Amino acid sequence: MTVRKNVLITGASSGLGEAMARKHAARGSDLALCARRADRLETLKAELTAVHPGIRIEVHTLDVNDHDQVFRVFRSCRGTLGTLDRVVVNAGVGHGSPVGTGGFPANARILQTNLVAALAQCEAAVEIFRDQGSGHLVVISSMSAMRGLPHLTAYGASKAGVATLAEGIRASLLGTPIKVTTLFPGYIESEMTTTGNEPTPMMVSTEKGVTSMMKAIEAERAQAKVPAWPWIPMGFVMRHAPLRIVAKS
């Protein structure tokens, strides 16, 4: 297993990004944590530094929809840490509305943040990796990318797009020391998935979900549905079941 010492994570102020930061810190990685909410990043930095005093943690206020800022921040992190060994493209937004129901502004924002801004992050990261001659790009997609869903149409489209983006990057880097991992999380407890009082079927705890994600990340797998159970068989069902059945799920 390749040791990835310096790790940059976007969307690190909450949810899966924050949980991945905790896991990387526990493994001794130096971190560059990026998000819009600077106060939450500073709180997380203070907590992780107290628990893991041997690691270095930088925090950067970053709006991934400011593409020029993405390139500036990534290059700055590389400059101060010396290298960027792993970049986790995690920042994103969810929800949205069925198409044609008046939700265009929210749906457009989802595609802008989850796909176009992800492209900016991938461009900035891979530019650095190509210059270094090594690196590990991790892109967070979603099981919602498997099929078009009526209640997650824009979100699923954005996550399918980002998965295809990551695969294209992987194809262009075959045979090089630069690795690309695409993760397809199922229902994992986080601020994004906690939207009401009704329990979500097949939802797993943040700890279980992120432990599964980290296992795939550290193995530098090309793709992984996480957690494997039930999402590997569910992925098959989602891909091959008639649309009328998938649409009711």
Results as ranks from 00 to 15, higher is better:
residue 215 K to W: 14
residue 240 H to L: 15
residue 149 L to Q: 14
residue 198 E to P: 04
residue 78 R to G: 13
residue 9 I to F: 01
residue 151 H to G: 10
residue 151 H to S: 13
residue 110 I to M: 05
residue 181 T to K: 11
residue 217 I to T: 09
residue 114 N to Y: 15
residue 91 A to Y: 09
residue 164 T to P: 03
residue 49 T to E: 06
residue 232 I to G: 06
residue 111 L to N: 11
residue 33 L to W: 00
residue 228 A to H: 04
residue 54 G to Y: 00
residue 144 S to H: 07
residue 227 P to G: 07
residue 208 K to F: 11
residue 147 R to S: 13
residue 128 I to T: 15
residue 202 M to T: 05
residue 227 P to H: 05
residue 121 Q to G: 07
residue 164 T to R: 15
residue 58 E to T: 00
residue 162 V to R: 09
residue 169 I to A: 12
residue 120 A to H: 06
residue 110 I to Q: 04
residue 212 S to H: 13
residue 238 M to K: 10
residue 247 A to G: 11
residue 173 L to I: 03
residue 18 E to M: 12
residue 32 A to S: 05
residue 128 I to M: 13
residue 45 K to L: 08
residue 68 D to W: 09
residue 77 C to W: 01
residue 8 L to E: 02
residue 47 E to T: 14
residue 238 M to Y: 14
residue 152 L to I: 09
residue 135 G to R: 02
residue 14 S to T: 14
residue 6 N to Y: 00
residue 115 L to C: 05
residue 213 M to W: 08
residue 46 A to P: 07
residue 115 L to Y: 12
residue 233 P to I: 09
residue 12 A to K: 04
residue 175 G to A: 07
residue 98 P to A: 00
residue 29 S to I: 03
residue 172 S to L: 03
residue 81 L to I: 01
residue 197 N to C: 10
residue 156 G to V: 06
residue 184 F to L: 15
residue 60 H to L: 02
residue 113 T to Y: 12
residue 231 W to E: 04
residue 33 L to D: 00
residue 218 E to V: 15
residue 191 E to N: 11
residue 151 H to C: 11
residue 150 P to A: 05
residue 18 E to A: 14
residue 140 I to S: 11
residue 235 G to A: 06
residue 192 M to T: 04
residue 68 D to V: 12
residue 239 R to V: 05
residue 97 S to W: 14
residue 21 A to W: 00
residue 214 M to K: 06
residue 138 V to Y: 01
residue 202 M to W: 11
residue 109 R to C: 05
residue 70 V to C: 02
residue 185 P to M: 10
residue 192 M to C: 09
residue 60 H to Q: 12
residue 33 L to F: 00
residue 52 H to T: 00
residue 248 K to Y: 10
residue 190 S to L: 10
residue 139 V to Q: 12
residue 14 S to R: 14
residue 92 G to S: 12
residue 220 E to W: 08
residue 127 E to K: 11
residue 248 K to I: 08
residue 130 R to A: 09
residue 35 A to C: 10
residue 65 N to T: 13
residue 141 S to A: 04
residue 144 S to E: 05
residue 94 G to V: 08
residue 7 V to E: 14
residue 26 A to L: 02
residue 210 V to W: 12
residue 153 T to S: 15
residue 81 L to K: 01
residue 135 G to N: 08
residue 36 R to M: 06
residue 247 A to P: 08
residue 151 H to L: 14
residue 198 E to T: 15
residue 171 A to W: 03
residue 172 S to W: 02
residue 245 I to D: 12
residue 227 P to F: 10
residue 249 S to H: 14
residue 68 D to Y: 08
residue 37 R to H: 10
residue 175 G to T: 02
residue 217 I to Y: 14
residue 142 S to L: 05
residue 7 V to A: 07
residue 147 R to V: 10
residue 142 S to K: 05
residue 237 V to L: 13
residue 5 K to F: 01
residue 234 M to N: 07
residue 185 P to V: 09
residue 125 A to E: 02
residue 246 V to P: 01
residue 90 N to D: 09
